[in-house]
Design a protein around this nucleic acid. Structure first.
Ligand SMILES: [Zn+2]
Ligand SMILES: [Zn+2]
Ligand SMILES: [Zn+2]
Ligand SMILES: [Zn+2]
Lengths: 165, 165
DNA sequence: AAATGTTATGTTATAATATAACGTTTATGC
DNA sequence: GCATAAACGTTATATTATAACATAACATTT
């Protein structure tokens, strides 16, 4: 069965983001418990910082925040946590921005397709087999076997388009 | 009319690459002449270095080669030339590798879709409206207006798959 | 509990990628 | 020629990411 989920939609500016954050943390704990791996305090803290909003977050911005609690924090602290979170599908890296966003559906490991607004910075995540199938079809024509895919689309979200009028 | 071009296919290991290079330089000169802009010696040299093969080339590798001719070359030399070449559609950046490849069809300004082999490093470039249209369709569903797109696919090319058997 | 293996973190240093800022040279149009 | 803009030179610095090795925390076996 082919799926097409708008996992993380663009959010109204004033939505209850605390709920997004809470459910992301709960989902992460659930995932790690089930997988028998540890969501350590550092990892959880980094995940919270990635989820501080719906914009991609930079590693060194995370580091700055970590330093507020523990001034000896260093780049490896952040990058290790981000690597862990990415491996577990809790966070995605936006390659074209060198920045990180929380995954809205860590239950199934996947690479999403991302739509990023130039104005407000929000990211929407899609998990869409139709896109994957099409890429697969194209690849097949020249015998290419896909094992990783990055789709990052920039533009303007509905809200920002409206306010430009 | 919808286009789907495999602009830069995966090449047999021993193809006549000199011809790829030559035609890229000629195409670049033609383009710049027509546009009334200058393909200066530095820019041409950087373009040649990007086209040294079909693998993405790193900015600092280009810099090292430039230094062989002129030891005072510095990062801005390379990045300015790369910026120019990208603006003119002669070169594409592969965001997920922080590396650059020559465009196989600079006649029409576009963002390609890239297929990159993990083993041999070769890049194939596609310029495909079917992919664009699908992304457009997906974006439309939540009111997103696309103005930039990045599609980078990693995997194994036909040759490398064959040799693994 | 002691010993051991494994995972996670601390710490220092450095690598790799990219841009800012400002001065100088070179091309181009008048 | 001369004014202007474009390109380039140069130095410094910002940003992003990893290497390398030491220590600590946790789990397993004895
Ligand atoms: Zn939210
Ligand atoms: Zn996701
Ligand atoms: Zn070639
Ligand atoms: Zn191209």
């Amino acid at each position: 069965m082919s799926k097409s989920k708008l996992i993380s939609p663009f959010k109204p500016a004033a939505h209850k983001h605390q709920e997004c954050l809470q459910s992301a943390i709960v989902a992460a704990k659930t995932h790690c418990d089930a997988a028998g791996i540890r969501l350590t305090p550092i990892r959880q803290r980094v995940l919270e910082l990635v989820w501080q909003n719906h914009e991609p977050v930079k590693a060194y911005d995370i580091l700055d925040k970590l330093k507020q609690a523990k001034s000896s924090s260093a780049p490896p602290t952040v990058y290790r946590a981000l690597d862990f979170l990415q491996d577990e599908g809790l966070v995605h890296k936006i390659e074209s921005l060198n920045a990180y966003v929380g995954c809205g559906n860590p239950k199934e490991l996947h690479k999403g397709q991302f739509f990023i607004c130039h104005d407000c910075g929000f990211v929407a995540e899609l998990d869409d087999d139709e896109i994957r199938d099409l890429l697969q079809k194209k690849a097949k024509r020249f015998g290419f076997e896909i094992n990783d895919e990055m789709v990052e689309i920039k533009g303007y979200c509905q809200e920002c388009r409206g306010s430009k009028k």
